[in-house]
Nucleic acid binder design. Sequence first.
DNA 1: TAACATTATTGCCTTTATGACAATAATTAT
DNA 2: ATAATTATTGTCATAAAGGCAATAATGTTA
Lengths: 301, 301
Amino acid sequence: MDQLRAMRYFSKVAETGSFTKAASIFAVPPSSLSRRVADLEKHLGATLLIRSTRVVKLTEVGQIYYSQLEDILNQIEQSSETVRSYQAKPMGQLRISSMVGFGERILMPLLGEFSGLYPEIILDVSLSDELSTLGRDDVDIAIRGGYAPNERVLAIRLMDNEFIPVAAPKYLAEMGTPKNVMELRHHKGLYFRTPSGPSPWLCNIDGQWHDVSGTIVAVSNNGRWLAEKAVAGQGIMMAARWAVTSYIESGELEELLFDRVLHITQNTDLAVYLLYQKQRYLVPKVKAAVDFLVARVQGKH
Amino acid sequence: MDQLRAMRYFSKVAETGSFTKAASIFAVPPSSLSRRVADLEKHLGATLLIRSTRVVKLTEVGQIYYSQLEDILNQIEQSSETVRSYQAKPMGQLRISSMVGFGERILMPLLGEFSGLYPEIILDVSLSDELSTLGRDDVDIAIRGGYAPNERVLAIRLMDNEFIPVAAPKYLAEMGTPKNVMELRHHKGLYFRTPSGPSPWLCNIDGQWHDVSGTIVAVSNNGRWLAEKAVAGQGIMMAARWAVTSYIESGELEELLFDRVLHITQNTDLAVYLLYQKQRYLVPKVKAAVDFLVARVQGKH
DNA sequence: TAACATTATTGCCTTTATGACAATAATTAT
DNA sequence: ATAATTATTGTCATAAAGGCAATAATGTTA
């Protein structure tokens, strides 16, 4: 039995939920898949799929096996790519997933130059603040605020992700500039949406954390929109420093300074990380992008 | 090409540093390994091994590929092992769907012991009198009053499901004890709800079925509630014997005896069945539960 | 409720790929 | 230089997978 082939067949049947659909993808008759999957089940001594003529679904073991297979098949594919592209020019499709804010303000502006350096790399950039899995079949490089999900993934600290309170001069003129952090509670606030609610304004006083959030005026997962509202004088916002430097320099926003430092999480050392799978650094396109991004971003910020 | 086989061959050659040694481990001629490795190299478009008649060494890519392969082959082995262990001992999630009455009075009290015997089985019990299809629904074991014959489903008769008329002594004292089945028509009745209306009181007299139902006082799909109303003296009820033995023993309810036997369907041989899917490869968790329930329930009732 | 259409499976045959064995070529140690 | 070990190649036999048609089962639709 060609075990790997059987595994690929099974995996696709599980994914599509149909022998026919999976068969058409492999361009072989469904009967082949049926036999190969049966072989595999015999080999493992377990029923992986519950078949009825209309629906095919995974058994419990099938589910377990499938989730492990996905990982395995991916690794096989990737190691093949590593070998095939070894010592070749950086080329092919490169998928980058980035946080929206970072992507818009920092990543995108750099990619023009990158494409100039490596014209044979086809970029596929997606911006999202969702966590990407990095290791399934989706992304070569991810840029996120959090740290590495598992030991196969390497995380490089790209730059600080310090959050600072900002507001428009117009807002401060109207509402008054808060003199200390406690006064913030009486101000209007613009907040990022996080899975655990609007990200609060936190302040550590003598080892004790205090929530000094002001009244909620707007909540969004879109930093640009929040920043625009801040510029329009609708409230105070905790924004990443790198995201608002241009506004500060132009005078549209103003950094608020207090005796205490404000944060948005109890982790006081936030940073932006570049994540990739360790072994994929050997693939030229990945190495090129990692090296490029690290050099450019760490150099500037 | 059987890629996985080629990968195994290559890996072993790399490990032993010899085609001959590796071949003897797989019990195939060295020529096979030579061809398979060559296939693999062709497939990857890279030379993995430097062969000389005396020594076989890894190339640089070969080394990289080999180290990744070790990981992959290991994971494949491990995932097979996972499946095998799942097939070897009772473990994983076990979903049981039972009729409400049986579940409350008989099944639930047994499950504590079961969990003690098989701590690696995670129970998921749902009680419902709906028909579950066992296959379309995600259920491993179903317990029902009847079953539709089906090739893929195995049914085991767990115990009788005889329905008997019962009433509280208080009710009988007030309303009089019916002397024969025909008198039932002038009594108050508590009825199960079924898809085809309240389940009637039926009696077979000389091969002819007669409906001897009394006036409807209450209808419910909840046997416990009906039984409580019966205990409170609100009427006569046709209840499963196993569901009311405790009431009869305590004297709260009394079984009514007639010259004719009463039924609630024209099927005079009602029983509780345990249903589970026939699988080509036996699933230990299901077998453990089936054996346990059959032994415990058939032993006691 | 009954007919229909879809889908997985099974049987039979063809094609492809792998194993077996012998012969050859190449390299290293003696 | 010779011998011996070892990888490779050629040829054939065998095993495995694909192709196609027919069947059985199941969900859908009128």
